[in-house]
Protein backbone atom coordinates (compact mmCIF):
# COMPACT_ATOMS: atom_id res chain seq x y z
CA UNK A 1 0.00 0.00 0.00
CA UNK A 2 1.08 3.56 -0.62
CA UNK A 3 -0.08 6.81 0.91
CA UNK A 4 -1.13 9.73 -1.26
CA UNK A 5 -2.84 13.01 -0.47
CA UNK A 6 -6.17 13.52 -2.21
CA UNK A 7 -7.82 16.91 -1.76
CA UNK A 8 -5.92 17.36 1.47
CA UNK A 9 -6.74 13.94 2.98
CA UNK A 10 -4.16 11.17 3.30
CA UNK A 11 -5.38 8.02 1.62
CA UNK A 12 -3.95 4.48 1.52
CA UNK A 13 -4.12 3.00 -1.94
CA UNK A 14 -2.86 -0.16 -3.57
CA UNK A 15 0.25 0.36 -5.63
CA UNK A 16 -0.70 0.48 -9.30
CA UNK A 17 -4.01 2.26 -8.72
CA UNK A 18 -4.66 4.58 -11.63
CA UNK A 19 -5.64 8.18 -11.08
CA UNK A 20 -8.69 7.46 -13.23
CA UNK A 21 -9.84 4.75 -10.80
CA UNK A 22 -9.23 7.12 -7.91
CA UNK A 23 -11.35 9.83 -9.54
CA UNK A 24 -14.15 7.33 -10.22
CA UNK A 25 -14.48 6.72 -6.48
CA UNK A 26 -15.68 10.27 -6.02
CA UNK A 27 -17.35 11.41 -9.21
CA UNK A 28 -19.75 9.73 -11.58
CA UNK A 29 -18.77 11.85 -14.57
CA UNK A 30 -15.13 12.68 -15.19
CA UNK A 31 -16.03 15.57 -17.48
CA UNK A 32 -17.09 17.49 -14.36
CA UNK A 33 -13.62 17.48 -12.83
CA UNK A 34 -10.03 18.40 -13.57
CA UNK A 35 -7.15 16.62 -11.90
CA UNK A 36 -3.75 17.78 -10.78
CA UNK A 37 -0.84 15.70 -9.49
CA UNK A 38 2.00 17.48 -7.70
CA UNK A 39 0.78 20.79 -9.12
CA UNK A 40 0.75 19.62 -12.75
CA UNK A 41 -2.38 18.85 -14.77
CA UNK A 42 -3.17 15.19 -15.41
CA UNK A 43 -4.91 15.38 -18.80
CA UNK A 44 -8.26 13.62 -18.84
CA UNK A 45 -7.11 11.39 -21.70
CA UNK A 46 -4.27 10.01 -19.58
CA UNK A 47 -6.19 9.35 -16.34
CA UNK A 48 -6.37 5.60 -16.99
CA UNK A 49 -2.66 5.31 -17.63
CA UNK A 50 -1.33 7.52 -14.85
CA UNK A 51 -0.65 5.46 -11.71
CA UNK A 52 -0.43 6.95 -8.25
CA UNK A 53 3.05 7.16 -6.78
CA UNK A 54 3.97 7.30 -3.09
CA UNK A 55 3.50 10.75 -1.56
CA UNK A 56 1.67 12.11 -4.60
CA UNK A 57 -0.40 15.20 -3.88
CA UNK A 58 -3.55 14.94 -5.95
CA UNK A 59 -6.23 17.57 -6.35
CA UNK A 60 -9.62 16.82 -7.92
CA UNK A 61 -11.49 20.04 -8.59
CA UNK A 62 -14.81 21.09 -10.06
CA UNK A 63 -16.88 24.20 -10.66
CA UNK A 64 -18.61 26.00 -7.85
CA UNK A 65 -20.43 29.29 -7.60
CA UNK A 66 -18.22 32.35 -7.42
CA UNK A 67 -17.92 35.95 -8.43
Amino acid sequence: MIVVSVNGDDLELEAGTTIGALVDRYVSDRSRVAVERNRAIVPRATLDEAQVEPADVIEIVTLVGGG
Binding site: V6, Y26, V33, V61, T62, L63, V64, G65, G66
Partner: peptide
Protein backbone atom coordinates in the same frame (compact mmCIF):
# COMPACT_ATOMS: atom_id res chain seq x y z
CA UNK B 1 -18.23 33.88 -13.56
CA UNK B 2 -17.55 30.67 -11.65
CA UNK B 3 -14.91 29.43 -9.21
CA UNK B 4 -12.95 26.18 -8.91
CA UNK B 5 -12.79 24.22 -5.69
CA UNK B 6 -11.98 20.74 -4.45
CA UNK B 7 -14.57 18.03 -5.01
CA UNK B 8 -16.10 17.08 -1.67
CA UNK B 9 -14.74 13.56 -1.11
Amino acid sequence: TVALRRVDL
